[in-house]
Design a protein around this nucleic acid. Structure first.
Ligand SMILES: [Mn+2]
Ligand SMILES: [Mn+2]
Ligand SMILES: [Mn+2]
Ligand SMILES: [Mn+2]
Lengths: 238, 238
DNA sequence: TCTATTTGTTAGATTTGTCTAACAGAAATA
DNA sequence: TATTTCTGTTAGACAAATCTAACAAATAGA
């Protein structure tokens, strides 16, 4: 009892979670059901059950139904709770599709620490208790939130060489936006203009200590906060 | 170029990310540096470099400095961007400590899909553009957010047998709160009171299709939304 | 230049997690 | 009851990721 520190791999947590889910609907859990639910070969389930059994997380004897022990039930529930918290965050807050959210959540759930889990739960409590926040998020933030200081934002192309700004947002379609984000152009990152470009000459900027080239038409999608920043190392907290 | 679909394990992504980080500060990357940065034995680095090299993600020849290829650089940057997004969410929004956030983020980063990544980036843009939201979050939500409808919340102990409610929040100290959350008692989950308890008799509630026992003093920490819910399966969207 | 230290690689082992193919036991059906 | 089908296990293979111990190459120091 007491501190049931997991000490168990993500895969085994998934097996426990699956067993828990199956037992939640159909009084018994069989190798077959588990294999089907997890999209895995039944021959992979047997050794997994042996590993779980060795760790005293399930009651398992050859060719018999599988039951969770007290410890196994605890881990199964906790894993599922993490799954639900992450999945809800992805769907309800970020607006990701159900399927994608399930997939991301089930992969990330194994790495959310106890404290992060607790805070994420608190976040939902806060959200539910604060209608104004709920409303803000429910509107769904598009690619271009209509901030009031919109006019003050500075396109990267207008930045003076050598000066540093924080990125405010990326104003571009799906594809270019995706490319820029992949490359690290996210809100809050600090950019220094190393060399301005032109119609044919790409801009060179410093981001995370790496120089990156940006063609003019892409650079103008990067909108910066108007306030000049210190040229310190990449450092997100003020 | 085009779609550089990762097709690479989390461990290899970490190696790329580490190489990227090292090259950001010290012109060359050696096996030694990588091993040190990743807290791993140098003998583990060599085979990893071979795997990366086979996948054309680094330029590597025995006993030589390691360089990222175009593809490797792309994945490294994207991994680091995910890392930063998650880390910032954990610290800036949830209020997790730096170290814990780094740890969680570096583990989860490998499983955040392209779309979730894009939406998380949009979330930060939205946050930066909306001072009221920023302010709400900056206050830091404690364990007990002061909602206005506080008085209307119903302790689990006052619920009528057989009726169902959504959990609004858990009103308890660290320890009990943690236990309840681990067991799935999070905001939005639907609870049905199966059997009311008393001073010595634990309450029995249905949550996720499983019956759970709760001693009275724990049950009264579970505060419910006042509106009655359908007794459907666990189903988070209305 | 010769030796000592640092750095990197190899060999060999281990754990985890997956697969296919073959087999064995149980249940259903004829 | 005999046979077929379903279900579960085993055997054997493989890839990834790590380790320790031993060795080899390169560099630095004397
Ligand atoms: Mn999972
Ligand atoms: Mn899951
Ligand atoms: Mn990582
Ligand atoms: Mn990372």
């Amino acid at each position: 009892m007491s501190t049931v520190r997991s000490d168990i791999t993500g895969s085994l947590e998934d097996y426990l979670e699956t067993i828990y889910r199956i037992l939640g609907r159909s009084s018994v859990a069989r190798v077959r059901d588990i294999a089907e639910e997890m999209q895995v070969n039944p021959a992979s389930v047997t050794p997994a059950m042996k590993r779980l059994s060795a760790k005293q997380l399930i009651k398992y004897s050859k060719r018999n139904y599988i039951e969770l022990t007290e410890k196994g039930l605890f881990i199964a529930r906790r894993t599922m709770t993490r799954h639900n918290l992450l999945s809800r965050f992805l769907t309800e807050v970020l607006g990701i599709s159900r399927e994608q959210a399930e997939c991301d959540a089930c992969a990330m759930e194994h790495f959310l620490s106890e404290s992060s889990m607790e805070r994420l739960a608190a976040f939902f409590e806060f959200l539910a208790a604060s209608p104004e926040l709920q409303a803000l998020i429910d509107t769904g933030f598009g690619n271009c939130p209509e901030g009031k200081e919109e006019l003050e934002l500075l396109p990267l192309t207008d930045l003076e060489p050598g000066s540093s700004r924080r990125i405010a947002r990326i104003n571009a379609g799906q594809k270019i936006r995706g490319q820029l984000i992949d490359s690290g152009f996210i809100q809050g990152a600090i950019i220094t203009l190393t060399r301005p470009g032109g119609t044919d000459l790409p801009f060179i900027v410093d981001l995370d200590g790496y120089d990156q080239e940006l063609p003019g038409e892409i650079a103008e999608c990067v909108l910066l906060h108007p306030v000049q920043e210190q040229t310190g190392e990449d450092d997100y907290e003020k």
